[in-house]
Design a binder for these strands. Structure first.
Lengths: 175, 175
DNA sequence: CGGCAATAGTAGACCGATCTACATATTTTT
DNA sequence: AAAAATATGTAGATCGGTCTACTATTGCCG
């Protein structure tokens, strides 16, 4: 059920994702949702975002496992993100972004999104500081990738993401 | 009324923005909405996004009017965006991003968002090709700024945007 | 072993609130 | 008076959430 919700939220945002829709897609009755998620929709959305973010983190781990330079690892991650987006018919991008933009400023949900981004940035920081690059680059690479995910999605083409791979390399070499 | 809708949509996304809320904030009756926007909510959202995008374009024009190098102009634009975001209590970011992520892939609304991004990218391309920089950078700078707007918003700090200014300079100099 | 609670989970009816949209006046403007 | 715009009322659907009833599993105890 979390998986179904995560998918729907990534496609159309948490506000547009009704619990009826989630229940229908999951083939689950109403009672089950409120049994497993007493917090209702808020709790389900939070779990779905966590779940979705976990899938992306898995992609990052896979990319890192193959070794190579930071640029290599990040390049493979971006490729994996682009593949995922393309295969979904450009309905999937970042499972956090849509929720982050819909969440009220300062809300619990916004805090969760911020935590997830902080985690990803820390991972990037680890990669690039290991090569002696300035750690400030981590946040900028994250921003670049998030922006490229957004543009690739609305344009329904992986070009921005593919281009980001070389931009990352340029940034790492220039610093 | 368009202005009110644009503000609400930028804050919490189009799906979460009810027309009742818009009417209440604008102090307008229901009938007026369907007189001026026979297309209903869809039409209002489209107009609001167009309106919001126009405000950002104005910021870009202002930044360009002051002259200087492409990096100078883009830096001033980013600063203006950060100021705007900070002044709003980090509720405002990009007036298009939230809608772009909520819009169904391939929908009319998604097309509108893509057009707006294309326009902004074309403006950036004009700026940087005038200095002989590769035009492919335009899309990447746009992605970087969009991503920085997203991160700045969820973190409620202008740091990512401020950092983007120097990243843009690095990118322009490295190419 | 056998029966019996207790628990975990499913299933769906139902509620009030809210949503978009439309229909019908009423006022303002030209 | 005609047209433009405003001002409400209301219809029908859908929203998130609560409620009760049903089923299956588990563990306890004689």
């Amino acid at each position: 059920m979390i998986g179904v919700a995560a998918e729907a939220i990534e496609e159309m945002g948490p506000a547009a994702t009704g619990i009826n829709e989630v229940l229908r897609r999951a083939g689950a009755p109403r009672g089950s949702l409120y049994f497993h998620f007493p917090g209702g929709k808020d709790e389900l959305v939070a779990e779905a975002v966590r779940f979705g973010a976990g899938r992306i983190t898995e992609l990052a781990v896979t990319a890192a496992d193959e070794g190579g330079s930071a640029a290599d690892v990040i390049g493979r991650l971006i490729k994996a993100l682009a593949d995922r987006q393309e295969e979904s018919g450009f309905t999937k991008g970042c499972p956090v972004a849509g929720t982050a933009l819909d969440a009220p400023a300062g809300s619990e949900l916004a805090g969760l999104c911020a935590e997830i981004y902080d985690g990803w940035e820390a991972t990037l920081r680890g990669l690039i500081t290991a090569e002696g690059r300035p750690e400030a680059l981590a946040g900028q690479i994250l921003a670049l990738v998030e922006g490229a995910l957004l543009l690739s999605r609305v344009r329904a083409t992986r070009a921005p993401l593919d281009a980001a791979t070389v931009t990352v390399r340029t940034l790492l070499e220039a610093a």
